[in-house]
Amino acid sequence: MDRLTLERNQVWLYLGGICAGLLLGSLAPELGGTLEYLLWPALIALLYATFVQMPLLHVREAFRDHRFVGAVLLGNFLLVPLLVWALLQWLPPDPALRLGVLLVLLVPCTDWFITFSQLGGGNVPRAIAVTPINLLLQLALLPLYLWLMLDQGVALELNLLDLWPALLVVLIPLALAALSERWIEARPGRDLWRERLAWWPVPLLAVVVFLIAGAQAEAVRSALSELLVVVPVFVAFLLAVPYMAMLLARLLALPRDHARTLAFSLGTRNSFVVLPFALALPAGWEVAAMVIVLQSVIELFGMVFYLWWIPRKLFK
């Protein structure tokens, strides 16, 4: 089996991991603490294996295509936040539910967006080049978006400064990936390390969702009705953002393959990067992490639809 086949069928791995985790958590709830303990090193490994695929030391080169980068930045960091704010108004006033939606929908994807761009006839070099820009900007702007869109009482209750351990879970793999990139580029033949690690994000993410489902099985059962409320919001998001991409592509006269890549960038979200922050929230906020996992599953089915819709209907 090649890597592209693995990535094409990843949704079934994740669904299997979630179902197995929920089953284990229901049959053996005493394992919840152990599963949660194992989750953090699994997340660090996942983030490192993903970040090492990005050209982190070549951010400047991504700005050479001004029109494409401008479209990506306008879409992901202006139009999408406005859409997310509008969709938020349709949700019940549950702060944990709303926080989970904001965390996952405000951050553009930096991993499987590249795979789906390739499968959907997009421009893979452009997709790879723009990923470090998306990653760095989302980490910088996410606190501002949350401050603007969350009730101030919620922000005070959370005390976001207490989430610094989760920030380390993201920054440590990011720093290690940058050092690895420098090491790989220092001598020919070392790129084999990156190629081998490219196999790992899919199985590692399957492990992560298995551990989350197992650790939070009881919370999932008690919050099932709340979780179903966000499904229409995530579906509406997936249906709306390709039209944003179409508008930007026409305004900036993007080539067809660039426009397809833009649509996949706006449609995919960076769920596993914000997972550490959701998991680090205090007791009573477990729904936020479950919302993020649910969005990932819905998004993957949405990407299957995108692979037909975007190249055959929107950007023919």
Rank of each mutant, 00 (worst) to 15 (best):
L146T: 03
L146Y: 07
L146S: 08
W147T: 10
W147Q: 11
W147L: 12
W147K: 11
W147I: 02
L148G: 03
L150F: 02
L150K: 02
L150S: 09
L150G: 08
D151N: 08
D151I: 02
D151H: 02
D151G: 09
Q152R: 13
Q152I: 06
Q152D: 08
Q152L: 05
Q152W: 00
G153I: 00
V154G: 03
V154N: 00
A155Y: 03
A155L: 14
A155C: 09
L156M: 12
L156G: 10
L156D: 15
L156V: 07
L156H: 12
E157R: 13
N159Y: 05
N159S: 15
N159L: 04
N159W: 04
N159A: 15
N159V: 03
L160R: 05
L160E: 08
L160G: 06
L161D: 14
L161F: 09
L161V: 13
L161E: 14
D162M: 08
D162P: 00
L163A: 09
L163M: 09
L163Q: 13
L163V: 04
W164D: 09
W164T: 10
W164A: 14
P165L: 00
P165C: 00
P165D: 06
P165V: 01
A166V: 01
A166D: 01
L167E: 06
L167K: 05
L167V: 11
L167T: 07
L167W: 07
L167P: 03
L168W: 02
L168A: 14
L168D: 11
L168C: 07
V169A: 12
V169F: 00
V169R: 05
V170W: 01
V170E: 07
V170S: 08
L171V: 14
L171S: 08
L171G: 10
L171W: 01
L171T: 10
I172K: 03
I172S: 07
I172F: 01
P173R: 01
P173T: 04
P173A: 03
P173W: 01
P173V: 01
P173L: 02
L174N: 04
A175E: 08
A175F: 04
L176F: 04
L176W: 00
L176A: 15
A177Y: 01
A177M: 05
A177N: 04
A177E: 05
A178I: 11
A178M: 11
A178S: 15
A178F: 05
A178C: 09
A178N: 05
L179V: 13
S180G: 12
S180R: 02
S180I: 06
E181T: 12
E181I: 13
R182T: 13
R182A: 14
R182V: 11
R182K: 13
W183V: 12
W183A: 13
W183K: 02
W183E: 02
I184N: 09
E185M: 15
E185S: 14
E185Q: 15
E185G: 12
E185V: 13
A186R: 15
A186P: 15
A186F: 14
R187D: 11
R187H: 15
G189Q: 10
G189S: 06
G189K: 12
R190I: 11
R190K: 09
